[in-house]
Amino acid sequence: MKKRKKSAIIICMCLMAVTLTAGRLTSLHQSVSALQTKNVEALSSGDDWATILAEWATAFRCRCHSSSNSCLGGNLISFRGLCYMGEDVVDCHDYDGNCED
């Protein structure tokens, strides 16, 4: 009886750990998706370039390059791209995420 109870608790906790981890991942993914969706909507409104911009917005984020003051396209999965997204997967104090800073 004691053994069964112990096994049940272990299984239960394993499931909880997995669920919590999945929840954390889903939440991160959702926050990223939400930001992307927001960006797409903002860029698409009443614009002939809507299709291009929608595709553009899901692919990269504008950020400054060291050699230029212009805002140029960079990959979302990059030091500066992730900072621009407001994600904490890299230390955003270290990277100039966008040209507005």
Partner: peptide, 24 residues
Amino acid sequence: RSVKDRFNHPDPNNIDMYEIAYDW
């Protein structure tokens, strides 16, 4: 690929990791 997948599994053979080298 999902953002998570791209972040956790960089692959030099996948173009989704790259960007135009605008510095040059």
